[in-house]
Design a protein around this nucleic acid. Structure first.
Length: 888
RNA sequence: GGGCGCGUAGCUCAGCGGGAGAGCACUGUGUUGACAUCGCAGGGGUCGCUGGUUCAAUCCCAGCCGCGCCCACCA
């Protein structure tokens, strides 16, 4: 016997263990089946499950479980990302907390060892959290971006791209994080709006006493690195100055005044100070005019020795104050305007980013992007929803060289070695590099390996094939590459998806996946991004604790409408938890009524109208869920099952089944029991991808607790029968009529406020049907309703009974003593007016020749039917009003 | 500045060329055997505004008004 209440905690662990121990998550059981493959977006090794993960992995699991049931050989490849900066920061923080030596004191080797220790101890907690969620990954294949195989893949790719000239070293401006003391890529820079000032500074013109060019800047300290001033070539105000010089205040350097279209005559004075070593635009202008690149900052953003002594070793912001004061003192500060402007920060927070001139490794992304663009243009990879395609193109067309070196310790060390004269050898191993160097120099020399590591995303870019065994030609790689669907959030389309496309195309000659399903962000109930600092984070682990994993999964699936952010609140989850309870109780009800699966049951031969009807509805639902999942319309899939189970199966079918269960017709009873069990069983299958735990539990119960229970639900086949197979048009029509009738009766009774003592319609309709063909005879039903009304009221005979006409039947219901007649009259009048409005609308339509000529026949017929219905409705209401008048 | 998207019931949102929907909230009502984590009934919407296309527009197109996100720029 099922427990009275559904307790998720009691069953979830058990089933997950069974699945994992049963090896059901592993591919290979069906070698002749088509493979279906998803690679997980690898969570950071430092990570803990947040709502984004919960959504992302729920959707992947829904797909995997669905495909598994649909007969595919499914591999969901799991693993984790080493997350360079994030992890290094975590461990550094840990060391600081414990008062241990910091990484510099400790040294590189020791520090990296500590990170590995940390990973072994507390890394990867998120994988167990994914298990808690129900993720059906093949854990035996778990990979880590820094394990041996993947590291080999990384080196391989680096060496290969370097040989092809697609990876190179270059000296140019990078985004420099002065706190972490590393370069970061454009994507890792976040612009943050801040209050600031725009200062105007006078640069004296050489040889023209008292004449100035006024320039403006938000970063006055950069003037120490100025090596020119630009004006627009057409700008009449400054044309005479082109080729002359300014004198840089406080420094005294002569600055050439150059003509460049970059200087916008409309802005400010039209003259722009040029700091080629500390500004991206100035860098370009500087290159064009061969201006000096003067780096004035140290790696931690202090003023260096290229600046006048007075400012050296000052922090950049300290220097700013000093410079402003000095300019003021010299009368060269022309003004200060308070403005709001954006300031670049690293995406890990900290201090403002500084454009900084260094030598770094770059990937020629522009070249690699060509194939990746073609893949999408030619439809070999498509985005769902489609509009992300544009975003992808936008980025790809304007792609910049990808800076891949990082001045960190945690990551893949760059496989490049430097000879004594600076010659660089890029090889898979140190031995190979040594050999190459020896050959190059004709003697054995000492090499030093490049100190830098690679951007974390470099290894992630290889994930779809490196995890499958590449560069080795493993059977798994052959079978599961390309993968099928990538499920991800839009925030990493550039970071990750685009780069996987580039690497996949380049190294595998085939796109890594045919579909990219892009889901939205999970926000809090007010639509705010969840963040720790705002304190609005909803923890999926808490939710699962409280409501069960299935409820959380169902909620996320039901809310995952394509393209729109999900606003999550606990109420939502609670609502879907109630749905789980509903399912549980439906199963209990079936159990109590001895509904068991009957192997000989043939749905096509069902005779009872209700049974034929529910089987048709089941088929429709099956088709709807299937179509929705195939189209990645997760919310529709969840919605279809929800609607069917709750509002069709429970609210209507089981109510109709009650009289049959308690009736005397044994054949009907047996058929109904078998039907109920059959429908429940199929519903469990349809729901399993979204709510695997509760369905697995009920499945076991339905199949018989012990012994011959057969395959677990996870291996069950996706229901094949569609609407055509089970649909029964007659049954559907009859049921529709009955449902409407009953609703109408209920409505009338509610409106009339019939007192509790008069127990009537619904129970009567539900319970006391004749065994056979009862629903097909509306007339009989109505008559019976009327009779029952009479009987029920007989205990307390109606006084001054008025009659309300319902359809063609007459129900004897006492009115005057139980309702407010004028209110009832008003209601009826309102309804009549509404009906007449509808009638007028439809009549107008039907008298429109264009409509009759051009609208599809079915639409015309439908409208005629509706017209008749509305007219009948109006007449009925009118008669009711009439009777009411008599009663009054 | 470029791109994407959103304005539908009190709230959160589905739907998207031919009868305005769901959940929650609200009102009324109902528990002696599936379920109060529930049932039944009900109120509530000129589907942002203005034009256009169409026999027909919440849905397609254009413009406008609000709002959001991404990218770029910001001397």
């Amino acid at each position: 016997m099922l427990d009275k209440t559904y307790a998720p905690q009691a069953i979830e662990d058990k089933h997950y263990r069974q699945w994992e121990e049963g090896g059901y998550f592993k591919p290979g059981a069906r070698p002749d089946a088509k493979p279906f493959t998803i690679v997980i977006p690898p969570p950071n090794v430092t990570g803990s499950l947040h709502m984004g993960h919960a959504l992302n992995n729920t959707l992947q699991d829904v797909l995997c479980r669905y495909k598994r049931m649909a007969g595919y050989d499914v591999l969901w490849q799991p693993g984790m990302d080493h997350a360079g900066i994030a992890t290094q920061m975590v461990v550094e923080r840990k060391l600081a907390e414990r008062g241990e030596p910091d990484r510099r004191q400790m040294g590189r080797e020791k520090f990296i060892e500590r990170i590995w220790d940390w990973k072994a101890e507390s890394g990867g907690a998120i994988l167990n959290q994914l298990r808690r969620l129900g993720a059906s990954c093949d854990w035996s294949r778990e990979r880590f971006t820094m394990d041996d195989g993947l590291s080999e893949a990384v080196r391989h790719v680096f060496v290969e791209l370097h040989r092809q000239g697609l990876i190179y070293k270059d000296q140019r401006l990078v985004n420099w994080d002065p706190a972490l003391e590393t370069a970061i890529s454009d994507l890792e820079v976040q612009q943050t709006e801040q209050d600031g000032s725009l200062w105007s500074i006078r640069y004296p013109i050489e040889g023209a006493e008292g004449a100035y060019l006024t320039v403006a800047t938000t970063r006055p300290e950069t003037m120490l690195g100025d090596s020119g001033v630009a004006v627009h070539p057409e700008d009449e105000r400054h044309r005479h100055l082109i080729g002359k010089h300014c004198i840089l205040p406080l420094v005294g350097r002569r600055l050439p005044i150059v003509a460049d279209e970059y200087a916008d005559p409309e802005q400010g004075t039209g003259a722009v100070k040029m700091t080629p070593a500390h500004d991206f635009n100035d860098f370009e202008v500087g290159r064009r005019h061969d201006l000096e690149m003067i780096n004035i900052l140290t790696v931690d953003a202090k003023i260096n020795e290229n600046a006048p002594e007075a400012y050296r070793s000052l922090d950049r912001f300290e220097a700013r104050k000093r410079i402003l004061a000095d300019l003021e003192a010299e009368g060269l500060l022309a003004g200060e305007e308070k403005i709001r402007h954006s300031v670049p920060y690293g995406d890990r927070g900290g201090v403002p980013i500084e454009p900084y001139l260094t030598e770094q490794w770059y990937v020629d992304a522009k070249t690699l992007a060509k194939e990746a663009i073609a893949s999408v243009e030619q439809g070999r990879t498509k985005f769902v929803p489609e509009n992300w395609t544009k975003t992808y193109y936008e980025w790809m067309y304007n792609i910049q060289p990808w800076c891949i070196s990082r001045q960190l310790w945690w990551g893949h060390r760059i496989p490049a070695w430097c000879g004594p004269d600076g010659h660089i050898f890029v090889e898979m191993t140190e031995e190979a590099a040594q050999a190459a160097a020896d050959a190059h120099y004709g003697k054995s020399v000492e090499l030093t390996q490049d100190e830098d590591v690679l951007d974390t995303w470099f290894s992630s870019a290889l994930w779809p094939f490196s995890t499958l065994g590449w560069p080795e030609e493993t059977p798994t790689l052959a079978r599961h590459y390309p993968t099928d669907v990538l499920v991800t959030g839009f925030d990493i389309i550039f970071f990750w998806v685009a780069r996987m496309m580039m690497m996949g195309d380049h190294f595998m000659k085939e796109e890594p996946f045919h579909t990219v399903y892009v889901h939205a962000l999970v926000r809090d109930e007010k639509g705010q991004k969840m963040s720790k600092s705002k304190g609005n984070v909803i923890d999926p682990l808490d939710l699962m604790e409280k409501f069960g994993a299935d409820s959380v999964r169902f909620t996320l699936t039901a809310l995952a409408a394509a393209g729109r952010d999900i606003k999550l609140s606990e109420d939502r989850v609670e609502g879907y938890r109630n749905f789980m309870t509903k399912l549980w109780n439906a199963a209990r009800f079936c159990e109590m009524n001895e509904c068991a699966l009957d192997p000989s049951f043939d749905p096509a031969k069902a005779e009872q109208t209700v049974n034929r009807w529910i089987l048709g509805e089941l088929g429709r639902t099956r088709d709807a869920v299937t179509a929705a999942l195939d189209a990645y319309r997760f919310n529709d899939a969840a919605g279809a099952v929800y609607q069917f189970l709750w509002h069709t199966f429970c609210d209507w079918y089981l109510e109709f089944a009650k009289p049959l269960f308690s009736g005397a017709d044994e054949a009907a009873k047996a058929e109904t029991r078998a039907t109920a069990a059959f429908v429940l069983e199929r519903t469990l299958r349809l729901m399993h991808p979204v709510a695997p735990f509760i369905t697995a539990e009920l499945w076991e119960f339905l199949k018989g607790a012990d012994g011959a229970k057969g395959d677990p639900l996870i291996l069950a086949a996706w229901p094949e029968e569609g609407a055509e197979a089970l649909a029964d048009a007659d049954a559907a029509r009859e049921m529709e009529w009955v449902v409407r009738l009953i609703s109408a009766v209920r409505s009338v009774r509610a409106e009339m406020n019939v007192p509790a003592g008069a127990k009537v319609a619904l129970a009567a309709v539900d319970m006391r049907a004749e065994a056979k063909g009862w629903l097909s005879r509306h007339e009989a039903l109505i008559a019976r309703l009327a009779r029952i009304e009479a009987i029920d009221h007989a205990a307390e005979p109606p006084k001054g009974a008025a009659q309300l006409v319902l359809d063609e039947a007459t129900l004897a219901i006492p009115l005057a003593d139980v309702i407010d007649l004028s209110a009832e009259r008003a209601r009826l009048e309102k309804e009549i007016a509404k009906a007449e409005g509808e009638i007028a609308k439809i009549e107008k339509k039907l008298s429109n020749e264009g409509f009759l000529a051009k609208a599809p026949e079915a639409v015309v017929a439908e409208n005629k039917e509706r017209l008749a219905d509305e007219q009948a409705q109006r007449d009925k209401l009118a008669r009711a009003l009439d009777r009411l008048a008599q009663a009054g």
